[in-house]
Nucleic acid binder design. Sequence first.
RNA 1: GACCCCGUCGUCCAGUCGGUCAGGACACCAGUCUUUCAAGCUGGUAACGGGGGUUCAAAUCCCCUCGGGGUCACCA
Length: 491
Amino acid sequence: MTKEVKVRFAPSPTGYLHVGGARTALFNWLYARKYGGKFLLRIEDTDQERSSAEALQAILDGLKWLGLDWDEEMIFQSKRVELYRRYCQNLLQEGKAYYCYCSPERLEEKRRQAQKEKRPWKYDGTCRALSDKERERLERDGIPRVIRFRVPEGKTIFQDLVHGEVVFENDTIGDFVILRSDGHPVYQMAAVVDDALTGISLVLRGDDHLSNTPKQLMLYEALGFSAPRFAHVPQILGPDRKRLSKRHGAKSLTEYKMEGYLPEAVVNFLALLGWSPGDNREKMTIDELIDAFSIEGISKKSAIFDERKLEWLNGQYLRERSSKDLFKDVVETLRTHGLLGEEIDDQSRERVLTTIDLLKERVRKLTDFVDLGSYFFQDPVAYEEKGKRKHWADPAVAVRLQAVADELSNLDGFAVDEIEKAVRNLAGRLKIGAGELIHPIRLALSGRTFGPGLFELMEVLGKETVVRRLRKAIDYVKAQKEPNDISVKAS
RNA sequence: GACCCCGUCGUCCAGUCGGUCAGGACACCAGUCUUUCAAGCUGGUAACGGGGGUUCAAAUCCCCUCGGGGUCACCA
């Protein structure tokens, strides 16, 4: 009988969902979707202290944003404590586990001592063979107890689907706790019981669990469960080659969303981190990913998250979406940055749409619409220094801009072609190249030395705004004249 | 420290059974286009951690070494 394909993502709600976790979830999801299996979501909240509702919400939001939907009901380990306890009792009865009364303080002391003497530390088995009498005494004294698993002798060998055969000598592993003194199970126990009971066929998870696998395998064996297969995906490292953590900029998915990344770009990028379709494809749709995904394509090497490549990919996705498609996201971004109010009439709707069209080719993140396009919505608050030096240094600038303003004011219509013709004609009459007008005008209108085609920009802004900004610039140039001369002398 | 995993351009990936000018992408540089910036197009710089073997031939197989990471919790 072939086992049903069933995988799971099992985060613990102790922090936000970062790219490493998200990628693990994605791989599991892709695997399930590819083979028509199930993708389960299990919340590992057996640690009461560290689990929080906010973290859970962040994880759920992240999965939802990426479009990773799960099958069946979400499993909360905190609601299954009785179950784990029962299995611990079974092990106890069969002599495969035992009560341990060692205090955490005492153990910590021993551990430190071992470290000082450079001896490898593992639990020394103090309580491994307590007599009934001793145990009764400790019980009578009310000493807190945990349940420890009795690690059997021998070796634990398994075939990891990405690493191949992995061998552990059991005696390098100390008897480990499976049930805490507060009656809550420890990760290893809860994970094994759940994976076994829910019929997980493949445990696909981070490399950091590779060393935990022998412990879990021993538990499967002791509990009489058949073990699933394992595949350990390399981890995602920070730029310093260290494990991802808040310290060196491991960002949550929420942050990527806030920064203007599209979920499809993030999914695509994450999929390519530690996995490859085998050919050299880079940009892949979700369906292509599902189709191409395979465990064989998973690399063994840990990877560093390269945000610049994600930016590029995001730009690709941004570019292929129509302005209409992008509208909602862009509006939201503009709003959070105060460039747009709640109310949007037809006119500003049109304006946003055109803005998107003009900016789309030069944008990599949604937030670039703000950074690169604020002047579509408000007069520039400053002029680029470089621009002033380059395009406004000529003493004739004020006069020329004035001429432009006059010329444009007299225009009947204000369409791209008319504007362009007017500006170029004026340049001709002034006997200067069109660039001599174009660049100073751009600076006046946007405060920038670069941007979309100037004539398109002018049409979007409208005659009134264009003329207003030109006049402002003229005033500015004139005002700068004298103070500038003085400051040159002074410095 | 013990144990486990990993090691191809700066970064992410290709490289089936040993034979490739070691390939693609991001980034970078140059050219092209253009009113600017992007985008696009064309081209370029750039890697098998090191040392030994085996072999006619090694990124690919073996050994050693160095480097990086992970696990050794009443965290997950």
